[in-house]
Design a protein around this nucleic acid. Sequence first.
DNA 1: AGTTCTAATTATCAATAGATTAATTAAGCT
DNA 2: AGCTTAATTAATCTATTGATAATTAGAACT
Lengths: 229, 229
Amino acid sequence: MPPKVAKRKISKKTPQKSRVRMAPSQRRELILAGAIDYFAELGFTGKTRELSERLGITQPLLYRYFPSKQVLMEEVFEIIFLDSWQKEWDALLENSSIPLKKRLVTFYQQYFEDSFSRRWIRVYLYSGLAGTGMNQKYLKMIRQRLIDPVCMALRALCSDDKNWGPISDDEREFVWVLHGSFFAYATRKYIFNHETKINFEGYLTRSIENFLDGAKANYPKLRSVKTSS
Amino acid sequence: MPPKVAKRKISKKTPQKSRVRMAPSQRRELILAGAIDYFAELGFTGKTRELSERLGITQPLLYRYFPSKQVLMEEVFEIIFLDSWQKEWDALLENSSIPLKKRLVTFYQQYFEDSFSRRWIRVYLYSGLAGTGMNQKYLKMIRQRLIDPVCMALRALCSDDKNWGPISDDEREFVWVLHGSFFAYATRKYIFNHETKINFEGYLTRSIENFLDGAKANYPKLRSVKTSS
DNA sequence: AGTTCTAATTATCAATAGATTAATTAAGCT
DNA sequence: AGCTTAATTAATCTATTGATAATTAGAACT
């Protein structure tokens, strides 16, 4: 093994890259924003050199703001997940003065813009495949803030009985069918690039209508269903 | 740049790895089977060394049977996709002497075993995220062999009118809702490790029942829907 | 038991990519 | 104008990993 002599060339005058000097917090935000786009497309195979190039900065600069690629990606995921729920939605979904159909249509119109978007879906799936624990947290949140409230609304819609007891997993799965079908739609669109020439508005409304029509007849049956393996 | 002299150490006696000598075709199959499992878990970031270790062979041996990792993975994907449709299903789905509900229940029971399995779902998503064109082919097949036949069955179920003309994308999306909700269920289970304590059989039946109940009321409306952007 | 064929192994190569370091440069505030 | 420090330049380390060349040995055949 040859002895390693650290020899560093002293540059005299070299062509300089145009340089923008930013406040650290600002630069950090910029990097994060770029990283979200980049990792949404490339996933874990994304390269720090390529990311820095897209950002118009040098690669070592990334390490001034983030100790490692791993940490950077983790922050990206966290942002994606935290940004995925608007606080107003809680009130909207539980507002029984609005017909459930209208609540759901309004909610999903917005949800498709924010969360069932290209960036979000891709990061979400990358994160799931990689086995980060983040998706669990997200699923739990969806259950608490979307699934369960809709279950309660369905109970109110389909039955006068006030004493159902705790929400069962069977009820939850009933509602997951609706949510899942939209998730699948977004996945087809953004992961598999499946194009359909439909009026999205109409599709959304019809899906929800159809779901609710079915629920009126079938949701009450879940009242007496015993959960077993 | 120092001249590179290819110097190879001549081993005299070295501890040998136990070696099994197999017929090429047999070894090939073995590698492929292992690769399916391996790449289903790890995706494109899977390493040839780790794969070979799992297989109990040395890494260079992979290259005796496959010219590159890329080619090996492509074969894996092709097998996964080709294996995902049983020929009997075509006849089953179009067999109008069986009630549609029963056809669908039977179909999805089997489909969940073969295609909405852990291995399949993961490879399918890896493939989609990586942007291989394979998913398109698969989606097209699903449309032809599942979506469209179900559309025709729904027409027969919900209306006496025999002159609907060609199937519209709105009708297809109506059916995709059902298929998509099952896809999403499998994704939740195998990608996000979401556990639910439900009776799967009952879940499947209820979902299909609910879908058909809704369809009876709402599918006929698609007859006159004009598709627009 | 030796010969031969070739499956499988051992030993590397070469390229990539995460991460670090030191010196230098220049943006923009006071 | 001077100072602070963000950012670049440039070089490099190190580990990983896809891929190849050279060597060894299993078993079928004579």
